[in-house]
């Protein structure tokens, strides 16, 4: 099996089988990652460029380490210190990177659809590391990987995603991925932070956090950005926290063995209390480790198209 497309732009257009295939390879990559010698030759002779138009700590570092562990030549471009600052168009920047023999371009961009735009204009494989409010597929894959590691499968699990769904590419990618894998996805957040007609994607939409949390197997908190308050979407962080913040008491509404995820970075005390961030249900640290494994898997798959899975074992 292999991935159908040249790129990974989102989970919306992937099949269930493609998602499972990526997760399968990621399992192998995690073994490599946890071993004493993290060097593998799978990306030897390949080059990976990360092109980030937005700030990032974990996603960017995770991609860079993933490519280095597998022996790729890697380079990164920050938009602020490149020709982008001179007004170069996205397509021109991407074509320039492409012409230097790049195999994979990892892009993060504030505008939805930017990775799709460059994918159409370059030979390199393009990985979406987050585009506007659209998708953040590698984050969702690592979230799903983390859940499956603990629960075996997503089928029949109730997953509650809480917070600013409207602006969240993480929520969108998770909704696509998790519903394809058979989870029951519920969301709750302030009415002003829920996108219209979300229920048409197959999720249940609740207006109170309590309803969404009841008997949940997995709870995911999303980051609340302070600037949303200024644009009138909610009155204050205090009020947000009072009605939608996750704490120990609310988490008790969920199943006893509930898993708590957060894509990070966390605003401690706003969307999650410190006690649950560092508590027994929290998988926030595992998520970070798994992020590297998932990205290794994708880099491998997109540079070895057509090769069989045995090659990596």
């Amino acid at each position: 099996m292999s991935l159908k497309g040249k790129d990974l732009l989102g989970l919306r257009h992937l099949t269930k089988e493609e998602i499972e295939y990526i997760l399968d390879i990621a399992k192998t990559m995690k073994l490599v990652l946890l071993s004493n010698n993290k060097k593998t030759p799978h990306l030897q002779g390949k080059s990976v460029v990360t092109l980030f138009y937005e700030n990032s700590t974990r996603t960017r570092l995770s991609f860079e380490l993933a490519s280095k562990y597998m022996g790729a030549s890697s380079a990164n471009i920050a938009a602020s210190s490149s020709s982008v600052a001179k007004g170069e168009s996205l397509i021109d920047t991407a074509r320039t990177i492409d012409q230097m023999g790049t195999d994979v371009i990892v892009i993060r961009h504030p505008m939805a659809g930017a990775p799709a735009l460059i994918a159409k204009n370059v030979k390199a494989a393009v990985i979406n590391a987050g585009d506007g409010m659209n998708e953040h597929p590698t984050q969702a894959l690592l979230d799903i990987f983390t859940i499956i590691e603990k629960k075996g499968s997503l089928k029949g699990l109730k997953v509650a995603i809480i917070g600013d769904i409207y602006h969240s590419r993480v929520a969108r990618s998770n909704i696509w991925g998790m519903t394809k894998l058979g989870a029951e996805v519920c969301v709750a957040g302030p009415a002003t932070l829920l996108p219209p007609q979300l229920e048409m994607t197959g999720v249940k939409v609740y207006s109170t956090v309590q309803e969404a949390l009841i008997d949940a197997d997995v709870v995911m908190g999303l980051r609340i950005q302070l600037e949303r308050q200024k644009s009138g979407l909610f009155p204050s962080l205090r009020e947000y926290s009072r009605f939608f913040g996750l704490d120990e008491k609310r988490l008790k509404l969920a199943k006893k063995d509930v898993l708590l995820l957060h894509p990070g970075p966390v605003n401690r005390g706003v969307e999650l209390t410190t006690s649950i961030i560092d508590g027994e249900h929290s998988l926030i640290n595992e998520q970070v480790t798994n992020g590297v494994a998932v990205r290794m898997a994708l880099l491998y798959l997109l540079t070895r198209k057509g090769d069989s899975i045995e090659a990596v074992n």
Binding site: A112, G113, D131, R172, Q197, M200
Partner: peptide, 9 residues
């Protein structure tokens, strides 16, 4: 509407 929701626009 639905289309802007799923495209994140």
């Amino acid at each position: 509407g639905y289309q802007s929701t799923v495209m994140g626009l």
